Simulated scan of single mutants.
Amino acid sequence: MRGPSLLFGMLCFFGVMAIGASAGKAACHNPFFGQCYGILHTCPPACPRLCEVDCRLCKPYCACDRPGAVCQDPRFIGGDGVMFYFHGEKDKDFCLVSDPSIHINAHFIGKSSSKGRDFTWVESVGILFRSHKLYIGARRVSKWEESANNMLIRLDGEEIKVPIGERQRWRSPETGLEILRPVKNNKVEVKMEELFTIVARVVPITAEESRVHGYNVTEDNCYAHLELNFKFYSLSQSVDGVLGQTYKTNYQSRVKITAPMPIMGGAERFAASDLFARDCAVSSFGSRLRPDSLGKGESFEVACGSANGGRGIICRR
């Protein structure tokens, strides 16, 4: 009789093979860069399944190794370029970023493990800006199908249906919010002028990942989750949150970067009661901007170099 792990492999393997076949290659999807547009590149060894292409340089890179990334279990690259893990707790919400102009919570899903902590992944994010609520989340599915739309987006409670297809757009004139599909499905680029750009991808836990990491994921749930890249343009020095704190110019990382798995603790400081709640201990959303703002329109570009699979990442602003 086939066991759960084998059944999971049968159910998720074929969908993931489609990811593997296409995700081993990546291309520039911006026609503005004509000499690079549409050219396939092989993903780097550090991210053989999923990567992005820098259209300006026409080179592939690992999006999960860029500052502002939230990927995997979940693995963060801070605004200071330091990599760390924040496991949180399954079925709980945590504040990723809190600033007077923007507040972002994440809902963690997962399962218990024998390692003394939950295996966790980010299933959705709730973004507060001005008087609006933006939801970006992965749909819960058992069998992963890359061709299916596995992402759900809502603005102020109303579902946003971005047309399916590469380079399709949706825009809200009232809010200035714009959503682009760089590829046909399961990836969006969300822009809010002068506030943020968020790239969100929905990915499953593959049978191979389950085997290697001991997740013991079964056939009833592929644990579809988000991989995220954030860029911010007008954060203040009062910014906080699991990720937000790392954008302060005087921030000094508390994680032990030489550890095999540098872990950010202090989950109680970042815990929220709901995906759109502002009640985490470090919340500052809606408060008056202080004069020590990092600068309107200033984005945070960090150049990074890495070896040894992402450990010991060295970055400079």
Rank of each mutant, 00 (worst) to 15 (best):
D118A: 08
F76H: 05
N30H: 07
T206P: 04
L155F: 00
R139Y: 14
N150I: 14
C28P: 03
P45N: 10
L128M: 08
G297W: 05
T258W: 08
P163I: 03
G110Q: 02
F232I: 02
R117P: 12
V203T: 09
A138C: 12
F285N: 04
L177V: 10
T206S: 03
Y251I: 02
E146S: 14
R49M: 13
S113Y: 02
I263L: 04
F232R: 04
V212K: 04
V97R: 10
A106K: 00
G88A: 02
G116N: 03
E194N: 07
S273L: 03
R169P: 13
K184W: 10
V16D: 15
A18C: 08
E208H: 14
A259K: 07
G34Q: 04
C36K: 07
R140Q: 14
N149W: 08
I314D: 06
A18Q: 13
V122Y: 12
G68R: 03
D279P: 00
N250Q: 13
L128D: 12
P163R: 08
E145R: 08
L155G: 11
R171V: 15
R201G: 01
N308D: 15
E159I: 09
K92I: 00
L180H: 12
H29T: 15
I314A: 08
R154A: 08
Y85P: 04
R311D: 06
A63M: 12
E193Y: 07
K115I: 06
A200M: 14
L228E: 14
